[in-house]
Design a protein around this nucleic acid. Structure first.
Length: 974
RNA sequence: GGGCGGUUAGUUCAGUUGGCUAGAACGCUGGUAUCACACACCAGAGGUCACAGGUUCAAGUCCUGUACCGCCCACCA
């Protein structure tokens, strides 16, 4: 039967077989109606754009450990898998393909066709990611797989947006956005990287109007001067403050612009003390425009760019030029007019779009925003109060700091791939002016209503009705007093309503929502919200979120915010904010029901051997599937778990294989461990097949039995604590040390003669079976495949297992559904005694090695009392003789030859029959040196009067006894 | 500029509330084809705990500062 188990563990066939069985039996399926405390994790959805890398492998391994552990603990577990549509990243990939293969832009194929193509692309690559997760052994409920752009998620997005709109938390505003002129979209701050660019700092003269004086400004972007609407100086700068209120004549365009004071923008110590102000093309200058808005010194804002980065009709003769050409031309023209004062080489950081790798252009554009203040405050509060806890705790700081800024969230993206903003607008010319048309609040004033009725005709009542399914708002349009804008937000995807709106001349907003908008809803949208599902009732809040630290702000914070907003009762408008806070303060338990998860476990980032992030472009990435192919999924998982410490980063030295692929020696550790377990189990099951395991109870146990069961108990307790505190490395280390160190190296070795002897082979076999059983349970969360395979085998060989009153092993056909082992009680007496035996054995082995004793030759040992009784150990002399290859002397005469003495396990050991007196002399000299050093250190410590006075008496006592022991040993060998 | 983390054996990392001679894995050295495993077994060598101060009877651990490395945030016209 063990012919079925090859000598070396071969992961490929085992993994495939086990995986197929689990899937066929729907072993991961969750049922909200089932009993058991709920335990739920929603996967951080990987971006559909990329294959999974080692970071994902780590992240998902940790989640699977938690899921499998809690499943075994009897929780009703659900792990929701899914994928993120990843807006801009995905569209960029498909657009690039379109360009390369067909030389077309997205405008050539049109919105619908492009979105169609992206869906095709998604089908192909999304499945690849799910396959990777399955190869890794993730026990997700695959039938609940979600995609952030699927219908269920879309319903949640629409509902949320509608709710936010109704609460006045969504608004439209002109804002400077990071504009990608290649993809023609705005890009969020986090999709930008900065690159050092060698350029120039151009110093340009701006003549003061009606004076022969000139102001000199310096800029790295001279073309933006076309959009300058002011120059600013510091109000206390004596060089220039006399000129405040006067005007300069902007060169080349010949426009008069004011000289204003702005003490925030201008640092009088820097450069000339004069700053050009281009509100439409620079974030700082935009802030100046905002600061002066409505003030006597309010300034203009002039946009000079087309969306494609060419200059528009505000740029005069430079209209139509690309920005870089315009820059060269402008510098040249200034030079000719003698207005270029200086051109100095300069290095500066320029923001580039992560996706298109082109420089970002700050650009004025219509965008939708979410008001953060009312949403952020409750989200801050639940973390402050510990209703959501970070592990390690320090990561909460980043969350609190970012959310504390409460900067409004720009949510529109000029893309085609994503959730389209559910807003329709139309602008109306008014026949008579409307005085009351100043704000966008409901209800709509009677004059505006009348105007709408008139303009919309027969469908006016449908649009005007508003309420449950759509909201209508009207507002004035700046600079056009005889116009108004009507905005309709539609709650559900209903064709009829959309047709009515379009018939009435409304147009849907062309933009889609930021990807993070749908991601923010992930924990409740995956469970069915806004429908009141059994899943939602059972599993929200979810239990824990496992993620990387770089998305604590972008994702974690927003999930907390949106979960509280959607799941919490009542509406959290700006006015209701205080109420929400008070609610959390007065009833934290209620608030705890609305958070998305209770714990956030942050896993470390995997870097390569040089400390650099892994990435495709750097070519240092390791593909988890390749590791699974070469080392096995369990080996990969174990190694990764063992690396998941509390530090921020872990390094994984990468080695290039001959075929160019990357790998790392680190994974050999996991592979070796699998092989060790495999062979220990193989040995055990061969023995079990030959013996017939008896029913045993506490009284039948030998010292090694008692010891290994006690060690097992300690290990289970350590594993429980480690998992509870998200210390996956400690869990891995505990089980590794137990299986390899305690079980294989010691217990199995002591058991070999027992199993072959006459005395108690059946009792020994029973303990062996029970400990193997518990070990497989213990290892299953981290190494699911190999343990499941061995479990099946063990069920065949030895279906009934356990040690009465010590270790129950309830039967189960599948390990994945077996129960977590209960820890046997600690047996301190057995542990202490066995520990001494191990020390004696190691000391004798050491002596044999130092004396170059041939492996097969037994030496003779006499054991005498030192600190402790030798008799206690000699009761178990068979174990010593077996494992140290020696003969323990009782009353016989010792054999001739060199003898050597050593202290171990509290006994004095004398070894006889050694043949190398030189080796012994060397050994003694070395030992003497060690002892002298130790004695000196101990004496010095005791000589310090403060030590005996202030240190705990127990410690002082211990030091004294160490000293006397060392002195005694030294006396013995001199 | 602000914040966070790191610096412990050749390498990658552990190191609980300060307290026995600072641990593990890999690598290295010597030995071993022993009937679970050479992806193994046995034994060993290897550390001024980045640096400088301080607190303490006692510091890898706590405090202050310095250096270097990494990440996040905000940025210099």
């Amino acid at each position: 039967m063990n012919s079925e188990l090859p000598k070396n563990y071969e992961p490929a066939s085992v993994e495939e077989n086990i995986s197929r069985t689990w899937l066929a039996e729907k072993a991961f399926a969750a049922n909200p109606a089932a009993s058991g405390e709920p335990y739920c994790i929603v996967i951080p959805p990987p971006n559909v754009t990329g294959a999974l890398h080692l970071g994902h492998a780590l992240n998902n391994t940790l989640q699977d450990i938690l899921i499998r552990y809690h499943r075994m603990r009897g929780f009703n577990v659900l792990w929701v898998p899914g994928i993120d549509h990843a807006g801009i990243a995905t569209q960029a990939v498909v657009e690039k393909q379109l360009k390369e293969k067909e030389n077309k832009t997205r405008h050539d194929v049109g919105r619908e066709a492009l979105v169609q193509r992206i869906w095709q692309w998604k089908e192909q690559y999304g499945n690849r990611i799910l396959e990777q997760l399955k190869r890794l052994g993730c026990s997700c409920d695959w039938e609940r797989t979600r995609f952030t752009l699927d219908e269920q998620c879309a319903a949640a997005v629409r509902e949320t947006f509608f709710k936010l709109f109704g609460d006045g938390l969504v608004y439209r505003g002109k804002r400077l956005v990071n504009w990608d002129i290649f993809l023609q979209t705005s890009v969020s701050d986090d999709e930008i990287y900065h690159e050092t660019v060698k350029t120039h700092l151009w110093h340009i003269a701006y003549p003061i109007d009606g004076s022969d004086k000139k102001m000199v400004v310096a800029t790295t972007r001279p073309e933006t001067m076309l959009g300058d609407t002011a120059v600013a100086v510091h109000s206390s700068d004596a060089r220039w403050n006399w000129a405040i209120g006067q005007k300069v004549r902007l060169p080349l365009v010949d426009r008069l612009i004011p000289i204003i004071a702005d003490d925030i923008l201008v640092d009088p110590k820097f450069g000339s003390g004069v700053v050009k102000v281009t509100p439409a093309h620079d974030p700082n200058d935009y802030a100046v425009w905002q600061r002066h808005l409505g003030q006597p010194d309010a300034i203009d804002i002039i946009n000079i760019l087309h969306p494609d980065g060419t200059l528009n009709d505000n740029a005069g003769i430079y209209q139509g030029m690309r920005r870089d050409k315009a820059r060269r031309q402008i510098v040249e023209d200034l030079r000719q007019r003698d207005l270029l004062i200086k051109e100095e080489p300069y290095e500066t950081q320029v923001g580039h779009s992560d996706r298109s790798k082109t420089p970002i252009e700050p650009y004025l554009s219509d965008q939708w925003f979410i008001k953060m203040a009312p949403l952020a405050e409750p989200a801050l509060e639940v973390v402050r109060r510990g209703l959501v806890r970070f592990h390690p705790q320090r990561h909460a700081q980043q969350y609190l700091a970012w959310l504390g800024e409460k900067r409004d969230w720009p949510i529109s993206r000029q893309l085609w791939w994503g959730h389209r903003i559910p807003i329709w607008t139309r602008e109306f010319e008014l026949t008579e002016p409307l005085n009351s048309l100043t704000e966008s609040a409901e209800p709509i004033s009677p004059p505006a209503t009348a105007a709408l009725r008139k303009a919309l005709g027969p469908d006016a009542e449908t649009v005007l009705k508003g309420g449950e399914e759509h909201i209508l708002r009207v507002e004035a349009i700046a600079d056009r007093p005889d116009w108004m804008r009507a905005t309709v937000c539609v709650r559900r995807e209903v064709a009829a309503m959309q047709q009515v709106l379009e018939k009435c001349g409304f147009e849907q907003d062309a933009d889609v929502l930021d990807t993070w908008f749908s991601s923010a809803l992930w924990p409740h949208s995956t469970l069915g919200w806004p429908r009141a599902t059994a899943e939602l009732a059972k599993w929200n809040p979810t239990s824990v979120l496992v993620t990387a630290r770089d998305i604590i702000t972008l994702w974690v914070a927003r999930m907390v915010m949106m979960n509280l907003y959607n799941m919490g009762q009542g509406r959290w408008t700006s006015d209701g904010q205080r109420e929400a806070q008070a609610k959390i303060a007065s009833d934290p338990e209620a608030a705890a029901r609305f958070v998305p998860f209770h714990d956030v476990a942050i896993n470390p980032t995997i870097l390569d051997g040089k400390g650099e992030r892994m990435s495709k472009s750097k070519g240092n990435g390791v593909d988890p599937v390749e590791i699974i192919d070469t080392h096995g999924a369990d080996a990969l998982r174990f190694t990764l778990a063992q690396m998941a410490t509390e530090t921020q980063d872990v390094r994984l030295p990468v080695k290039k294989l001959a075929d160019g692929r990357n790998t790392s020696e680190k994974f050999e550790m996991g592979r070796n461990f699998c092989n060790k377990l495999w062979n220990a189990a193989r040995f055990a099951m061969t023995a079990l097949a030959e013996a017939s395991p008896a029913t045993v109870s506490r009284n039948d146990l030998s010292l090694p039995d008692r010891w290994i069961l006690s060690r097992l108990g300690q290990t289970i307790a350590a594993a429980d604590l480690a998992i509870k505190t998200f210390r996956f490395d400690q869990y891995a280390k505990a089980v590794y040390d137990f299986v390899w160190g305690d079980f294989c190296d010691w217990y199995v070795e002591t058991l070999k003669p027992v199993l072959k002897g006459d005395a108690r082979p059946d009792a020994g076999a029973a303990v062996l079976a029970a400990v193997l059983d518990a070990s497989l349970r213990l290892l299953h969360p981290v190494m699911p495949f190999i343990t499941e395979r061995l479990w099946w085998q063990l069920n065949e060989v030895c279906p009934q297992r356990g040690v009465a009153q010590v270790l129950d092993c309830p039967t189960s056909a599948r390990l994945i559904h077996a129960s977590w082992p209960t820890a046997p009680a600690v047996d301190q007496e057995a542990e202490t005694l066995f520990e001494r035996l191990m020390q004696v054995i190691t000391a004798i082995r050491n002596l044999r090695n130092q004396h170059n004793v041939e492996a097969k030759k037994a030496i003779t040992i006499r054991m005498e009392d030192a600190q402790f009784s030798a008799q206690d150990l000699m009761t178990h002399q068979a174990i010593i003789e077996l494992l140290a290859n020696c003969l323990v002397l009782n009353a016989q005469t010792p054999p001739p030859g060199t003898s050597a003495q050593v202290q171990a396990g509290g006994c004095l050991l004398t070894a006889y029959g050694l043949s190398d007196p030189d080796a012994e002399r060397q050994r003694l000299a070395k030992r003497r040196e060690e002892l002298v050093k130790q004695i000196a250190a101990l004496e010095a410590r005791l000589a310090n009067p403060n030590y005996s006075q202030k240190a705990p008496p127990q410690l002082v006592q211990q030091t004294r006894s160490q000293l006397s022991q060392a002195q005694a040993e030294l006396g013995g060998i001199q």
